[in-house]
């Protein structure tokens, strides 16, 4: 009986490992291999290309802004959804998940409609000399949109399971709303928050669809790393494309490592009553 189960579980593990190897590990290795195919010099040239560096900086900027905004928004919405009861709560919860359900390309089109020439906003924006579409603001907005639900969705279950009683206890002890948040709520949710931030950052860096629609693909101005890679690829400049792609891979691996560290810390904290 027990032996059978062992064989079964080994089979499953082998299957999972094979799956991961073909779908995840092999492509990563191949990306790095292709990137270095024509030697380290070509690789360094590709990633130190001014357009590549511009794209990297834009990606990092969009990521930082999107994550910062969504951290604030995620905290506020998770607080609203777990600490208060009101009509339309389910609707708000569903709306927050909208970016998960909608294709990023469609999300990009939203912004084209909202800020493009057909929009009633367009004359106002032109008046104020603000260029949104096919400029950095649209890239940032699209990134904010696609990473919108991550932090809220990480926080809500944790805050729900903790209930309101610690906050109420703080209130009876004289703490203000801000003191309660800072001394009681935040320490309780810090690992979930950090986890959400990391997931949102990973998603922001890799975003292609929505950004592709709104950016206008202007090299050195509105191209993010994924868009830059696509351009290089379409120009049959494979080595450069893979070299720049390897940058994204490295950033993703760093975030994954951070994610695992956070998870490990959070588990350890639980055992210590922290």
């Amino acid at each position: 009986m027990r032996k059978e189960k062992d064989i079964g579980s080994w089979l499953l593990i082998a299957l999972a490992a094979l799956f991961l190897l073909i779908l995840l590990v092999l492509p990563l290795v191949l990306v790095v291999h292709e990137a270095l195919a024509r030697g380290i010099r070509v690789y360094l040239a590709a990633i130190s290309d001014p357009f590549a560096i511009k794209a990297l900086l834009l990606t990092l900027m969009a990521t930082v802004i999107a994550v910062a905004l969504n951290t604030l928004f995620g905290l506020a919405s998770a607080w609203l959804l777990t600490k208060y009861d009101f009509h339309g709560k389910a609707l708000i919860g569903a709306l927050i998940d909208l970016p998960f359900a909608i294709s990023p390309v469609v999300a990009g089109l939203f912004f084209v409609v909202l800020f493009g020439r057909m929009s009633p906003l367009f004359p106002l924006l032109r008046e104020a000399h603000v260029q949104v579409l096919f400029a950095v603001p649209a890239v940032v907005l699209a990134t904010v949109f696609v990473t919108f639900p991550f932090i809220t969705r990480e926080l809500v279950p944790v805050m729900e399971s903790r209930g309101r009683s610690e906050e109420e206890a703080a209130a009876t002890l004289g703490a203000s709303g801000w003191q309660t948040f800072w001394h009681v709520t935040l320490p309780n949710i810090r690992w979930a928050l950090l986890y959400g931030v990391i997931l949102a950052a990973a998603r922001a860096m890799g975003e292609f669809g929505a950004v592709s629609v709104v950016s206008g693909h202007i090299r050195g101005r509105t191209n993010t790393l994924p868009l830059h890679i696509e351009i290089l690829y379409n120009e049959y400049n494979f080595t450069a494309a893979f070299a720049v792609a390897s940058l994204l891979v490295v950033m993703a691996v760093v975030l994954l490592a951070a994610r695992n560290a956070v998870e490990w810390q959070a588990k350890r904290g639980m055992h210590h009553g922290d």
């Binding site: 009876t172 004289g174 001394h183 309780n188």
Partner: peptide, 27 residues
């Protein structure tokens, strides 16, 4: 609540779990 001069002991205690006994009492 904090200005009423009351102390409240919750049914589930609602202790601040990331604080030590001393920190809880000192809050």
């Amino acid at each position: 609540p904090g200005k009423r001069g009351i102390g409240f002991v919750f049914q589930d205690y609602a202790l601040f779990r990331h604080m030590t006994v001393r920190e809880n009492i000192a809050f």
